[in-house]
């Protein structure tokens, strides 16, 4: 078994960074042996979360890491910003809820795409952690 790779930290400041972040996530996903469906799920999830950062917080960062051990393969992505935060998390996770006239599909959709989904938010900090996990 190969050593887990160091986490990769990517800035998210422009819509180009959204593309870069989802590429990086897909690449590691592939390297860790996840299939095409999972690669697409993760890339899409990262795209949603990174876009939210640009849209609602202006900028932030994205950490992509290999969380695998002998029992499971795991890719974990943390996307965080220091923007205004989300006042009502439950509402934000509801399909169709959007404060920007969007589809309101980003957060609830992302949650359905991944195996682990955590969100913490307060004024000045929002952090979403997602993971795909596969037993060996």
């Amino acid at each position: 078994m190969s050593e887990p790779l160091d986490p990769e930290c990517l800035p998210i400041r422009s819509t180009l960074d959204v593309v870069t972040a989802r590429h990086a996530a897909r690449e590691l996903c592939e390297r860790l042996g996840f299939g095409k469906a999972d690669q697409t799920r993760l890339a899409t999830a990262v795209s949603e979360l990174a876009r939210n950062v640009i849209q609602y917080a202006g900028e932030g960062r994205c950490l992509i890491e290999d969380g695998s051990d002998d029992r499971q393969r795991c890719i974990r992505v943390r996307i965080e910003d220091q923007g205004p935060g989300i006042r009502d998390l439950q509402q934000a996770l509801t399909d169709g809820y959007s404060t920007s006239g969007g589809l309101g599909a980003g957060l609830p959709g992302t949650r359905r795409l991944v195996d682990e989904f955590q969100i913490e938010s307060a004024p000045g900090s929002t952090r979403v952690t997602i993971a795909l996990i596969k037993r060996r």
Binding site: K36, A37, T40, T44, D95, L103, A105, G109
Partner: peptide
């Protein structure tokens, strides 16, 4: 539309 893209879109939400 790629099969995995279709899969992901439906998982994210019907009617996207």
């Amino acid at each position: 539309i790629q099969p995995f893209v279709a899969l992901t879109l439906i998982e994210m939400g019907r009617g996207l």
